[in-house]
Amino acid sequence: MTVKELQKKLNLQYICNEGLAEEKEVTGCYCGDLLSWVMSKATDGDAWLTVMGNVTSIGVAVLTEVACIILTENAPADADAIKRAEENDVVILGTEKNAYQVAVEISKLI
């Protein structure tokens, strides 16, 4: 499933790089806010659910090659993070739901 399809089914809001959502494939899901932990555990193709919208999060997304970042519970993305995400083709989405609720929905879809 593409990030675009996931966005539609879960009614997620685009925060940046909407244009890339169709080409990114979601094959799994990972929940975590401790960036160093995520760095060594998330795998490529994961939809990464987190509340960490800072510039380091973007580095983690690039390093792990996750399909997208989904900021849960309306967690904000810093301006620097959005800029870095745009430069590095990282798709960021947002939702008011918590990580558990989103993960449950994703597990039904993939």
Binding site: M39, S40, I58, G59, V62, L63, N88
Partner: peptide, 11 residues
């Protein structure tokens, strides 16, 4: 520290 290599283009 975890032995993760820096990726200068990103970090």
């Amino acid at each position: 520290m975890p032995p993760i290599k820096n990726k200068p283009s990103v970090f």
